[in-house]
């Protein structure tokens, strides 16, 4: 088949791989943001009873961690809370006056990370029911609902765009191969008329389709590999925070590109030749 067919294959596979990576990044970003959603429970702060409250708080943390909706539980002690507060002040360049306090006024707290930010109610209920330890559960319901509505749109939108791009890619590749087959329809017709079997007529085209597919996939992967270095450096800070498994992602892209190239090449040839094989 033609150089044009291979070139189209390369461009379309790059498009598909690009959108696949974008979708993976988007999903990871959304998961990252959702993972940041925490339920924070401020604990009671009774001067003199700190040690007993810490014991109770740890017991509560174990109960909370036992809930299936909970991913992580972090106990923030009074000291840690104060340390964070000071850190924040220093970052903002504000004067740290906490040294003049006679007592640490900040409460200890539990920070509960969720498996799914939409499933917050059981955790809130459990924390609220232990009012002897928990002073206040910070209201997160509205925040979570807004966040999940945005992330749901992003997830669905990303998937829809990816599926659309996949369809466009399949359509264009199959059509390109069809053109290559149309150019040889006379040869196909002659083969039929002199008594070639369908299989005999088909296999060179299937072979060529597979060849174009693999060649296109190889070229596309080469381009991606060359791009991976610079783009990775550029976006290192971004990718580092995302829960992306780069090894798995690279393997998926290789499978996607090679599988699509080979599959569409063969399928396109098969469909295109079939329409000339007659009844």
């Amino acid at each position: 088949m033609s150089v044009a067919a291979v070139a189209t294959m390369v461009l379309m596979l790059l498009l598909l791989a690009g959108f696949w990576l974008l979708q993976a990044g988007l999903t990871a970003g959304v998961a990252y943001v959702e993972g940041k959603v925490e339920i924070v429970a401020d604990l009671r702060d009774v001067p003199g009873a700190e040690a007993a409250l810490v014991v109770e708080a740890r017991a509560l943390a174990v109960d909370v961690a036992a809930l299936p909706e909970v991913r992580t539980v972090h106990f923030v002690s009074k000291d840690e809370a104060l340390a964070r507060f000071r850190e924040r002040l220093r970052e903002r360049g504000q004067v740290d006056l906490t040294g003049y306090l006679d007592r640490n006024p900040l409460p200890a707290s539990l920070e509960v990370g969720l498996v799914d930010p939409r499933e917050f109610q059981p955790v809130v209920d459990l924390l609220s029911s232990r009012s002897e330890v928990v002073d206040d559960v910070v209201e997160v319901q509205q925040l979570i609902e807004r966040l999940t509505s945005v992330t749901n749109v992003l997830r669905t939108g990303g998937l829809v765009v990816l599926v659309l791009v996949a369809f466009v890619v399949l359509f264009i590749i199959v059509n390109t191969i069809r053109l290559a087959v149309v150019a040889r329809r006379e040869e196909i017709e002659i083969m039929r008329l002199v008594g070639a079997s369908d299989a005999f007529i088909r296999w060179p085209f299937i072979f060529e389709g597979a060849f174009v597919g693999l060649l296109g996939a190889g070229a596309a992967l080469l381009v991606l590999a060359l791009l991976a270095g610079p783009v990775g450096d550029l976006m290192y800070g971004f990718f580092r925070v995302l829960p992306l498994e780069l090894g798995t992602l690279a393997r998926d892209v290789v499978l996607l590109v090679v599988g699509t190239g080979l599959g569409v090449g063969v399928l396109g040839s098969w469909l295109s030749v079939r329409s000339y094989l007659g009844r």
Binding site: E186, E187, E189, I190, M191, R192, L193, V194, G195, A196, S197, D198, F200
Partner: peptide, 29 residues
């Protein structure tokens, strides 16, 4: 295909493969 091998067909427009020699066109069948 087996049936067509028992019939020879000739057309007005010859239907030869332009990139093959006379011998190869005949051998093609």
């Amino acid at each position: 295909p087996e049936l067509r091998r028992r019939i020879g067909i000739v057309f007005q427009d010859f239907k030869l493969l332009p990139a093959r020699t006379v011998r190869d066109n005949v051998a093609f069948a």
